[in-house]
Amino acid sequence: MPWLRISLLWLCFITTVAQAGTQLATDLKVLTSPEHAGRGSGDVEKNASARYIHARFTEAGLETYYQSFRFRQGLGKLGYGHNVVATLPCNAHVCDKSLVISAHYDHLGSRGSRYYPGANDNASGVVVMLDIAQRLAAQQRHREIVFVATDAEEKGLYGAHFFAATLNPERVALNINLDMLAVSGKNRLYVLASKQASDLTQAIAPAFDNQIRAFIYTSPASMARRLDTPRVDWLRASDHYAFHKVGIPFAYFGIGIDPNHHTHKDQFEQVDLPKLAQVSGHINAFISALSVAAAP
């Protein structure tokens, strides 16, 4: 069972938090910088954020490419998006179905002379995804792991819908969607998971501890009641919905409501970096339990 490997993986967790935190901070600082101008989507050219993410995946040794697409924005106007897709192939003798890790990198862009940094939404998810990719690259894996940094999520999940349509659902075990991971003082993450993925998502709880707790739901309505967000449909709230639409099970990780969401206050300085490094370690332990092949 996947959860049996958690205790061994946990031994490596404490020693890697500090190192991961340094790179997480660097990546977060870059993606929220003025040069990235709020990571708006819609331009024909690949933006600075897409290029940076591509370079980071490539540095980690992943097979990486851009996936460009068009979408409608406004009356009669076309927007252009650029997903960044990176793959770690299965390198074991026997391979199981693949995992798809997603996190949208786009945000609201700029308004006049001001830009929206989008540190939690969703630079936090992207930097954790980059950290996990780098950690898993050195492991023997009995699954192919596909990472996709999606574009145009804020405008209608367009990048995720485009990417999900290219997949064969029969060959994908699970989508793990990361969106807003900068935990607050409550030290909580909320997970919405497909019921049909219970044999995989049972590995989530053992990958966490009492410092960062994970609350797992299989019903969007139950999650909305717990968070007191009656107007939020958590199934459709982020990119996991695109995978759900094509029949791929999912596990969506996020903090729920952020008071700085879609404001200029969602800044680098508001993110507790040591906690974000812990979150990354926990999610990595979960993914590793599903994917890392046992030593022969």
Rank of each mutant, 00 (worst) to 15 (best):
N120K: 14
N120F: 11
N120D: 15
N122E: 11
N122I: 06
N122A: 15
S124Q: 11
G125E: 03
G125F: 03
V126T: 13
V127G: 05
L130H: 10
L130V: 07
L130W: 02
L130I: 11
L130R: 10
D131L: 10
I132K: 03
A133S: 10
A133H: 01
A133Q: 09
Q134G: 14
Q134H: 14
Q134D: 10
Q134E: 12
R135F: 07
R135E: 04
L136W: 04
L136G: 06
L136T: 07
L136Y: 06
A137K: 13
A138Y: 04
Q139D: 08
Q139M: 10
Q140P: 01
Q140N: 02
R141F: 00
R143Q: 08
R143P: 09
R143I: 05
E144C: 09
E144L: 04
I145Q: 01
I145S: 05
V148F: 00
V148A: 04
T150A: 00
D151F: 04
A152H: 03
E153L: 06
E153K: 11
E153I: 07
E153S: 13
E154V: 13
E154G: 13
K155R: 15
L157D: 02
G159H: 03
G159K: 04
H161E: 08
H161R: 13
F162V: 15
F162S: 12
F163V: 06
F163W: 13
A164I: 02
A164W: 04
A165N: 14
T166W: 01
T166N: 02
L167V: 08
P169C: 07
P169R: 11
A173K: 13
N175T: 06
I176L: 10
